[in-house]
Amino acid sequence: MKTKALILCALFAALTAVGAFIKVPFLYSSITLQFFFTALAGVLLGAKYGALSQLVYVALGLAGLPIFTSGGGFGYFLYPTCGFLLGLIPAAWVIGTLAGDGRSMKRVVPAALAGLAVLYAVGLPYMAVILNVYMGKGMDLSAVLMAGMIPFLPGDMVKIIVVGVLAPKLLPRLRFRSADAKNPS
Results as ranks from 00 to 15, higher is better:
A121R: 00
M105R: 15
S104D: 10
N132W: 11
K106E: 03
L145G: 08
L174Y: 15
L153G: 02
L88S: 02
L45N: 01
V94S: 00
Y126N: 07
K23C: 09
G100T: 07
L85V: 02
L116F: 15
C82E: 08
M1Y: 02
G19M: 09
I95S: 09
D156K: 05
I31L: 14
A5G: 15
Y28F: 15
L45W: 00
Y28G: 04
C9R: 00
A179M: 06
V109N: 09
T16S: 06
F68E: 05
G72F: 14
G123D: 03
M149C: 14
L33D: 01
V122K: 05
S30Y: 10
Y126R: 10
S29E: 11
A179G: 10
L65H: 04
G42S: 03
F36R: 03
D156T: 09
A117M: 11
L86C: 10
L88Q: 05
G61V: 03
V133M: 10
R175I: 02
D156F: 04
M105K: 15
A121Q: 06
R107Q: 14
I95V: 15
A92K: 05
V122R: 05
G115Q: 07
A111H: 07
K2P: 06
V24D: 01
V109P: 12
S29Y: 12
I95K: 01
L65D: 07
T32M: 08
I89H: 08
L153W: 06
V133R: 12
V109K: 10
K2Y: 02
P66T: 12
L170A: 02
A117Y: 10
S29K: 08
A147P: 02
S142N: 06
L141R: 00
I89R: 12
G164D: 03
A47M: 04
G46K: 13
L40S: 06
V129P: 10
A17C: 01
P154M: 15
A13S: 11
I89Q: 10
Y79K: 14
L170H: 09
T97W: 15
V122F: 11
G123P: 07
L113A: 13
L85F: 07
A114R: 01
V133N: 04
K169H: 09
K137I: 04
Y49M: 09
V56P: 08
L88F: 15
I67Q: 07
